[in-house]
């Protein structure tokens, strides 16, 4: 049985890839455990440029706060000779991961300044990353900025990064575009080697008793897979970039579905956070059992088999409203009369 796939030009032993999340990848031992459990590649958690800058100011503030004010205590902290306040810790993590693991390592980047995206991407390449995933995390709130302007900014960011590095670059997208197919096509044209569908944003909750906004972990569940599934199926025949499914992969069968829709890999996070790293092995076992039972020989064999173009019911992926969805059911005339 052949589970191999290719993604961003990398040969992978299976479609199972842990997705970018700090609890999965910020520790070298965790990376080892993931590889042992069967990860075909790992997307590291994102390097957030804005966070690095914030931390620099925060550190500076705390080291200076209250100093030079009392004669007996002119300072409150020892003055270190060096600080690692830039990207060097992240880069070191890439280097260590590359040295310790044999599977591909994909770095993830969330830039802040135009120079930051390209500078950090280059550094990630130099540190040995096999590919880069651009985490275009951005919640626009300014009503005077048009969607078109934001889309242009995304395209330009990708172009700049592609221009500065030679390793493959994937783009992780949110589903919030007026015409996602158009956005995907433009990113594809701008040189995206892969599109990762979709980014999951933290959604704050409101505590009505305490009158507080609460940041809650937003782990995905089974139903969440349907959104990426639809768009991967639609885009599979429309863009050249590799597609990755993320958000809602809970079982081996979900991976099968994603691949059939057209995904080259299925990125997993919430399931591993819920059940632990060995769950990755279980997912692989489930895939194997399923393929055995339904007599599939390879992942390649099913790749894109249920995409919009290949599926027996292409129009199903375009139905938008429930009212159209129920048309597929047989409704007796009598019942309709009652309803009217």
């Amino acid at each position: 049985m052949d589970l191999t796939t290719t993604y961003l030009g990398l040969n992978l032993k299976s479609p199972l890839v842990p997705s970018a999340a700090a609890p999965l990848s910020d520790d070298l031992d965790n990376l080892r455990h993931l590889e042992d459990a069967g990860a075909a590649a790992i997307v590291l958690h994102s390097l957030f440029e804005e966070q690095l800058v914030r931390e620099k100011f925060e550190l500076h503030h705390h080291l200076e706060y209250g100093t030079e004010s009392f004669a007996e205590s002119l300072t409150y902290f020892p003055e270190p000779d060096t600080f690692h306040t830039g990207p060097e810790l992240y880069l070191e993590h890439i280097r260590e991961a590359k040295a310790a693991l044999s599977i591909p390592i994909i770095a993830s980047l969330n830039g802040f300044s135009p120079g930051g995206w390209t500078e950090y991407a280059k550094l990630m390449e130099e540190a040995g990353a096999d590919a880069i995933e651009l985490n275009l995390y951005f919640v626009p709130t300014d009503p005077d900025v048009s969607g078109a302007a934001i889309e242009t900014m995304f395209i330009e960011t990708l172009r700049d990064v592609k221009y500065s590095v030679e390793i493959p670059v994937a783009v992780k997208l949110s589903p919030y575009f007026s015409n996602l197919a158009n956005m995907a096509k433009r990113l594809d044209k701008a040189g995206a080697d892969g599109l990762v569908l979709f980014n999951r944003f933290m959604q704050p909750d409101i505590n009505p008793e305490e009158l507080e906004v609460e940041a809650v972990a937003n782990l995905s569940g089974g139903g969440d897979l349907r959104l990426p599934l639809r768009w991967i199926a639609i885009l599979h025949d429309r863009v050249g970039a590799d597609l990755a499914a993320t958000g809602g992969i809970q079982h081996g069968r979900d991976v099968i579905k994603a691949v059939m829709a057209g995904a080259k890999v299925a990125q997993v996070c919430s399931a591993l956070l819920r059940h632990g790293f060995p769950y990755l092995t279980k997912l692989e076992d489930e895939i194997r059992h399923w393929m055995e039972e339904y007599e599939y020989e390879s992942i390649a064999q099913m790749h894109g088999s249920m995409s919009q173009a290949n599926s027996p019911d292409a129009s199903a992926f375009e139905r938008a409203q429930y009212v159209r969805a129920i048309e597929s059911f047989y409704v007796p005339d009598a019942a309709l009369r009652v309803l009217h």
Partner: peptide, 8 residues
């Protein structure tokens, strides 16, 4: 401040 970063 050089060691704390260009921004500082």
């Amino acid at each position: 401040y050089g060691k704390k970063g260009a921004e500082i």
